[in-house]
Structures are given as structure tokens and as C-alpha cells.
Simulated scan of single mutants.
Amino acid sequence: MMTMRKRTLKWLTFSLLLIFLTSFVLNYSSTGVPTAWFSKHMALGLSDNLRKLIKSQPCACTRCISQGKVSYWFDQRFNKTMQPLLTAHNALMEKDTYQWWLRLQRERKPNNLSDTIRELFRVVPGNVDPMLDKRLVGCRRCAVVGNSGNLKDSSYGPEIDSHDFVVRMNRAPTVGFEADVGSKTTHHLMYPESFRELGENVSMVLVPFKTTDLQWVISATTTGTITHTYVPVPPKIKVKQEKILIYHPAFIKYVFDNWLQGHGRYPSTGILSVIFSIHVCDEVDLYGFGADSKGNWHHYWENNPSAGAFRKTGVHDADFEYNVTTTLAAASKIRIFKGR
């Protein structure tokens, strides 16, 4: 408590000093430089520095994911400079990253990426904060809700809904399952082949595994000409354009290299959701990950004995991904709620 008071006092003192200096600079005109120039450029510069300072404030949560020197294993993998979302300002990819990304779903004749991105940001926001204003909210508590059958009869719904961000993925429904999985969703990760319509205020986070996925977003919000990738996909979607975010391909490779260390062919939406969340949240709680208490790998909305078949395809290394989440929990970086 005393430490927090000292930080608050230090912050107030700094703020008052900053206000005084800004006022002094803006009113000082003996240099011969017009005051208007100072107003526009100096104030903007001070504003940018203040914003950076605010973003670097210590985490206000009880448990803070980004805190270093808690787990050597975590510190070796976590790179806080990595930005989860693609924007018009960070879209340039290194050659090896781009070539790796093109191989994920073996796209034979990809369209020019620069042209595609330019067209993409004509229809969806290209100026979003790639960290989703992480440091401007004090303490951001996030729930990442997987699709495991272990959520059945868990009664986790109200607890999930109490989080600031609720992240879901792929075709996961909430209607009819609210008591166990909650009703709130702020961000829903999906790719074209796993698309489902979302609530009006939900942000769709597209995970692109190929250039066609980016073209599909353009088409699905405008002309509706793309109806098939390697399977049929919705030609049109009802998601508001300003609610569409793009998962950065370079961040997918970061997850693959740093966290999965090359296991599987590429990461699943589940582990992409987890690592996305530890970068934009201060506390992360996982629900609906892993098998149920009987060892079954099925979705909470269906009873499908073959739902765990993906574990044998080699596309995703489900066991290694699950070990990553349990190690994060063991390092006190996240919490896992295992349900039934």
C-alpha cells in the first residue's frame, strides 16, 4: 500500500511539473520562433511522450503477466515488442516470415501481398492500436474461452462474463450455453473456413493463414465474389467493417518459433488466442481447454466422438500446445479452469 502511495505521489508530482513546463514553453516567445509552431509541434511531442510514459506504467493487477524475472522459461519466450494485430504501419514483413507464412496452407499462386494489404485497409481499419490500448485501462482481466466439452455443467458463465475481455474462437456458440460458457464476447478469433456470425459489438479477429484469407475479408464486406477457398466459405458477412481486426502473420510465426518451438505445422487457433491474450491483457484466465474428465476431446455444444481427430493430423501438436498452457499456469502467468 505504501509503495502504491509513493508511486501515486511521484506520478502527480511529475504531472504538475509537466504542465508547468508545457505552459512555460508555449508562452515563451523571446526566441523569435512563432508561438503557434510551439503549440502544434511541442505540444504534440509532449503528448506523445506522455502517452508512452502512461503506457509504461507498472501493471495495476494483483498478478501481472508481463512482469519479468518471475520465470526464466517465460522470459526466454515472451517478447513484449511483438504486435499481435496487423496495421497499415506494421504490415511490412521480413522475407523469411513471408515465405514461411505462404507455406502454411501451400498457396500456389498468391496475389501480391502489398497490393492486397493496401486494398484491405481501404475497407477495414488500418490504424488500430496493435496492443489494443493495453496500458490505458489500469488492469485488464481477460478470459480465453476454448471449446472443450469440459465446460459442460461447469457453471463458469457468470465468472467468464466478469472479465474485461472475453476471447472466443471459431464456431463456438453461446446461446443456450450461457450458464457454462457465459454470454459476453469482446473478441472472436476465426479464419474464413471457421466463420460464424457475431454479435453487433463483437470484434472479429481474422487469423489469416494465406493471402486468400485477406482477399476473402475484402470480398465478404464488399462484392461477395469469393465463395470457396479449399472449402466453401460465406460470400458475405454481416460484421461491421470497423469491427474487423487482422491477426499479424508475423505474430503467428512468433508463436510458432518462440512458444511452440517448431512443433506441429503451424499453431492452432487455441494457442494463438492464448498468446494473443498474454500480450494485450494483464491477467488471463483459461476456460474450456484440454479434454474432459473422461479424456474425451469434443466440443461443449456437440457429442462427437471423432472431434479429437485433429490431434492425429500433424497440423497442430495439441499435446505440446497444452503443455505450453500448463507451464504458463505453473509459472503463475495464467490460471486454468478445468471444468468437468
Rank of each mutant, 00 (worst) to 15 (best):
F121I: 07
F121E: 07
F121P: 10
R122P: 01
V123Q: 12
V124M: 11
P125N: 11
G126R: 09
N127D: 15
N127S: 12
N127I: 03
D129S: 10
P130M: 05
M131I: 09
L132R: 13
G138W: 01
G138F: 02
R140T: 10
R141S: 14
R141P: 01
C142E: 03
V145M: 12
N147K: 06
N147G: 13
G149I: 01
L151W: 02
K152M: 04
K152N: 08
S155C: 12
Y156K: 08
P158G: 13
P158D: 15
E159K: 15
D164R: 07
V167C: 04
N170E: 00
N170Q: 05
A172V: 04
T174R: 13
A179R: 15
H188W: 03
H188F: 04
L189F: 13
P192A: 08
S194D: 02
S194L: 07
R196K: 14
N201M: 11
N201E: 15
L206M: 15
V207Q: 08
V207K: 08
P208M: 11
F209D: 06
D213V: 11
L214C: 14
V217D: 05
I218N: 11
A220R: 14
T221R: 13
T222Q: 15
T222N: 15
I226M: 10
Y230Q: 11
K240Y: 00
Q241Y: 00
E242S: 15
I244Y: 02
I244C: 05
L245D: 00
I246N: 10
Y247K: 09
I252N: 05
I252G: 00
Y254K: 07
Y254L: 08
D257H: 06
D257W: 01
N258V: 00
N258T: 01
N258W: 00
W259H: 08
Q261C: 04
H263C: 05
